[in-house]
Design a protein around this nucleic acid. Structure first.
Length: 272
DNA sequence: AACGGAACCTGAAAGC
DNA sequence: TGCTTTCAGGTTCCGT
């Protein structure tokens, strides 16, 4: 589900819901959401810890604690955190829960994940998966020179390269698809064939697409395109067969690296 | 090292 | 109506 904009929205929600509060109790209803064999020990290791803040790198969240282990959360495809009154009934697909306390006020944040592709991890030191993430486009911006250098080293398609979390952290299928449309760049173009001018246009398109997606994330919770009542807000993602919003030619759908790509074969070209 | 493909999971929507 | 197939915004592992 979530890519950088949704995860950033989740981070901002979690800051409001959890920062400065103490974990009175942690519950794991489905051990599969806790990776690294830490499910059984998670409640004891988190109980009593105070949440000092929330960091995000790409699609990963770190719930920073006053002491003890490092606590990471990845939302996978369908994971989300929600805030509920302590006595509210369990959510459908609820997999884990943090009961929080500050003074006399008790609250509850719950991790919901139907497909269980998301994960939490407890780590003693900064883990390799976090260190290996590339620059975060929102936090660090997209530097065209650095991006160009990385792209020049891979013969993959530009679409597949953009989704490589070591190259840029947080770009997923939607962002890659939309940014390539915004840049008018054919997703099948080899990454190592792009000239500097094209890379620059692409870098700007990625930043603009993230800013636009972020602006859509206004509600008090995380929402996904696929959820009921949510209208597809994207230009081409999920619109295979529909007319291109720019030139009206029918949008094509192809599969790259096992993921669907929608693009306009008429106005998206091998170079910009 | 680098690639494609499958696995991990389950629900919703589309097809028959 | 109900059964089957397809698809889904992610990561990781496995074999070549």
């Amino acid at each position: 589900m979530p890519e950088l904009p949704e995860v950033e929205h989740a981070r901002l929600c979690l800051v409001r819901w959890t920062k400065g509060r103490t974990i009175a109790a942690a519950l794991v209803m489905d051990a599969r959401v806790v990776h690294g064999g830490a499910a059984a020990g998670l409640p004891a290791r988190l109980a009593g810890r105070r949440i000092t803040g929330l960091r995000r790198r790409g699609k990963w969240l770190e719930v920073t604690l006053d002491a003890g282990p490092r606590f990471y959360s990845h939302l996978g495809m369908t994971g989300k955190w929600v805030s509920r009154p302590v006595d509210a009934p369990a959510e459908r697909f609820e997999k884990a829960r943090l009961e929080l306390v500050r003074g006399k006020v008790r609250t509850s944040v719950r991790y919901v994940d139907p497909r269980v592709l998301g994960r939490m991890r407890l780590e003693e030191a900064e883990p390799a998966f976090w260190r290996k993430l590339g620059p975060d486009p929102l936090h660090d911006g997209v530097d065209p020179r650095a991006l160009g250098e990385r792209l020049a080293r891979t013969p993959r398609s530009i679409k597949e390269a953009l989704m490589d979390q070591a190259l840029l952290a947080g770009v997923g299928n939607i962002l890659a698809t939309e940014a390539l449309f915004a840049a008018r760049l054919d997703p099948r173009t080899r990454a190592d064939s792009l000239d500097a001018r094209t890379v620059k246009a692409l870098a700007r398109a990625i930043e603009a697409t993230i800013a636009r997606s972020l602006a859509l994330e206004t509600g008090p919770e995380i929402t996904y395109v696929s959820e009921a009542r949510a209208e597809n807000p994207f230009s081409v993602y999920g619109r295979g067969g529909e007319p291109c919003p720019r030139c009206k030619a029918p949008l094509r759908r192809v599969v790259q690296g096992g993921r669907a790509t929608v693009f306009c074969a008429t106005c998206q070209r091998p170079r910009v």
